[in-house]
Nucleic acid binder design. Structure first.
Lengths: 193, 193
DNA sequence: CTCCTATCGCAACTTTGGTTGCGTTAGCAT
DNA sequence: ATGCTAACGCAACCAAAGTTGCGATAGGAG
């Protein structure tokens, strides 16, 4: 009747989640199978099937587990610099074949399971909330109107990059990141957010 | 040795593509299997496997086949009205559970096959090119600087909507569409595109 | 220390997506 | 009209994902 979060269960869970990340980094969403993850984790596949059920649940769990990973909020001194830094971080991630696999797989999983979709939504909501700090600082400095929707400005900054990656298939680089950030900033300065 | 594009092959292809759309509208990407499509098309599954191979190829083919479908370019008299119309069309599509399945499935397919990815890229490149007409008219009317990148303005208008649908999982409505269009327009007027 | 049971390992089984070999049908050319 | 062959239908086959029943193991409580 009693749960056992401190013992074997915790070890198994940690091993499986680590294996999920490792498999994801290697082969992306396509190569991510329950069996491969189980084998790499040194665990039997039935264990994974019983506790998670599908690869999408695995990704959802891995995503929630990684939310507390530290992500540095940029602080360059100006909103423009900060927003460009945020955008450039996204652009660099997608430009790197090794690092892009994880977020791409997350989106793929979110398209197939509601658990993964919710986990992804929470992940990005959290990240946006944290990134919104650069907007708060800007408002405090008088760079932006006090009515500015901070999170919306962050969304507007990142959206064009994701759009290129997932919809139009166009490359993302520093130039695109700067343009996105400046465009979003122009809207904010115009008091549209 | 001779090809036979006019006879049975053409009928089979049309039936299969129609069945692909129908299956897609019903159950989305998850329910889309080669067997279901073949059965609905009144064709044996081996035929579909031999000519297309995977569901992603099916989607890619269906997408290329639907590219010539007419899509009305809005003409409200002002750029703002036109851009809002473009954005609202996207928002309405994603807000309708029946109509959203197709584009969502296309993105899902694009994440798993390069053929689907290329087909999707071509599809949206074509649509952007056509929608860019509203920008050309605006430049002709003197509403926007002549240096404006028309396609980039269209991308900026649509990006936040797709971002909400595929990344943050937030709803899209008329209000979001208007804000996206106005934000993109502000950037264009500032000469940032 | 000892018992209880949640959880895991294992092997066998079921289901389903995908493949192959072969005979049949139906366009197209002559 | 008639022969040729590309394309299709069919059934049997293969591989891999996912399931189930059962015995074994190891935390945690008393």
């Amino acid at each position: 009747m009693t749960a056992r979060p401190g013992g074997r269960s915790a070890r198994v869970r940690a091993a499986v989640i680590d294996a999920t990340f490792a498999e994801l980094a290697e082969g992306g969403y396509l190569r991510l199978t329950v069996e491969n993850v189980a084998t790499r984790a040194g665990v039997h596949k039935t264990t994974v099937y019983r506790r998670w059920g599908t690869v999408d649940e695995l990704i959802a769990d891995a995503l929630e587990h990684s939310r507390d990973a530290d992500w540095p909020v940029p602080d360059t001194g100006s909103v423009e610099g900060d927003l460009i830094a945020v955008a450039d971080d996204v652009a660099r991630t997608f430009a790197d074949p090794a690092r892009r696999t994880a977020p791409v797989a997350v989106v793929a999983a979110a398209l197939q399971s509601s658990r993964a979709r919710e986990a992804m939504a929470r992940f990005y909501a959290d990240r946006h909330r944290r990134a919104a700090e650069v907007v708060s600082r800007a408002v405090a400095r008088g760079e932006l109107p006090a009515t500015t929707d901070a999170v919306e400005l962050i969304r507007l900054t990142c959206a064009p990059l994701f759009y290129r990656v997932f919809v139009t298939g166009e490359p993302v680089d520093r130039e695109v990141a700067e343009r996105s950030a400046r465009a979003a900033l122009a809207a904010a300065r115009a008091g549209l957010l």
